[in-house]
Amino acid sequence: MSEELLKIENLKVKAGDNEILHGIDLCVRKGETHVLMGPNGAGKSTLGNALMGNPNYEVIGGSVTFKGENLLDMEVCDRAKSGLFLSFQSPIEVPGISLSNFIRNSVDVKTGEKSRLLPFRRKLMEKMDILDMDISYAERDLNVGFSGGEKKKAEILQMLMLNPDLAILDETDSGLDIDAVRTVSRGVHDFHESGEGAMIIITHSTKILESLHVDYTHVLVDGRIVATGGRELVDEINENGFEKYLK
């Protein structure tokens, strides 16, 4: 029995005046891969954002523990430092700071020590290679002028460099062409293979999951998890859609 990494109990979340999540229960253990599927507006991204601590989402009930700590009490930066990672759907452009400096800074604040330049660069190059990213992106301003695909790759690159205990991938595959999905999925695969990091993959397509081992699949509809299963659930939804889960 591997240890519990994330435990969500009866989580209720509001965005603006609307309650989006009406009581989510979810348990992720070390190294597990969970897939969260559901139609648009079901609350998938809300869950990711609430876990990371996005101030636009307000937790109005329930509890979340991460590595035994009360996650909801933690500052966003402390959630990151304790090993939680969220890959953004549309990451913000930050002029004046290069992707490579940004990642190095993030790695340094997480580890609490200054990383040595050369080993850092070597690892960065290696991961960029996996993601089929041109080296020049390392010195470009963070996300500025990046295409949709490049932004997603940059998110995965950050994940690979930060090596979190739990990565939440928020529709990392949406809006990408087949090749880009394949590349991103190679990065996700690398993350899965090279460490013990767990993942929650939020997606409504299944392409990204093709080469991936999936432990659990959850179907989220109207702010509630209405079904949980294994890999087979992905295939079933792939075939029949969410129809049968909708009221």
Partner: peptide, 13 residues
């Protein structure tokens, strides 16, 4: 706020 949240989600105060 989105920009601040994004950077904080990578560990910055």
């Amino acid at each position: 706020d989105e920009a601040v949240f994004y950077l904080m989600s990578r560990g910055m105060s």
